[in-house]
């Protein structure tokens, strides 16, 4: 069969909220969902360190068992039917975002590897002609992060830290800031 060239991406522009806000989802878990409830928050900034108020994060993650709510996940693991794994999270006027979810379980990676718990993020905003992909890992998973096959692809170890959300002392709250540019530029993926 002949291969078709995909339709090009275009920016969501400054007024995406008109079309996308109906599906805002900042609390991914339901009451019956199993797993540790966590809050992830942070601030998104541009190359001048200025907050980006007109962006939207879309997040995708496995349930607490490490299983995705998708037909192509055929792992022999229990599936939490109450958990869909998708969130749509806008930034506010100060560039801040926050969402509540459950901590995902580990999922398989390339070869026989196991990936550390993580959340995949697609980030869209005015100024981005195509969304960028990045990932959120968790600071209290240091051992799993150290052997994660994707984090291991990042040449500069110091940059791996940009993907690790920092757990607060005594609370299931994580801080994860996103820098589009600058010395602390977040690692983005060519996916």
């Amino acid at each position: 069969m002949s291969k078709l060239t995909p339709t090009p991406s275009q920016t969501v522009g400054p007024y995406y909220s008109i079309g996308l806000n109906w599906l805002i989802t900042t609390d991914l878990a339901r009451d019956a969902t199993t797993g540790e409830r966590i809050v992830v928050s942070g601030r998104l900034t541009d190359g001048d360190g200025a907050p980006i108020p007109d962006a939207v994060l879309e997040v995708w993650q496995a349930d607490a068992n490490g299983r995705y709510a998708h037909a192509e996940d055929t792992q022999d693991k229990p599936k939490d039917a109450t958990f869909k794994g998708f969130g749509r999270v806008p930034t506010d006027k100060d560039g801040n975002f926050v969402f509540t979810t459950i901590k995902p379980g580990a999922v398989p990676g390339p070869g026989n590897s196991l990936q550390a718990p993580h959340i995949l993020v697609a980030l869209s905003m005015r100024g981005l002609l195509r969304h960028v992909y990045t990932r959120i890992y968790f600071s209290d998973e240091a051992a799993a992060n150290a052997t994660d096959p994707i984090l291991g692809l990042i040449d500069e170890p110091a940059r791996r830290a940009t993907l690790v959300a920092q757990r607060a002392k005594g609370a299931a709250e994580y801080r994860w800031d996103i820098a589009m540019q600058g010395t602390g530029e977040t690692v983005f993926f060519d996916a």
């Binding site: 980006i52 100024g127 994707i150 692809l153 589009m180 530029e185 996916a191």
Partner: peptide, 12 residues
């Protein structure tokens, strides 16, 4: 000011 400046990491 909003586009990545560092080389993207190829994601399998």
């Amino acid at each position: 000011k909003r586009s990545p400046t560092k080389k993207l990491v190829q994601l399998p």
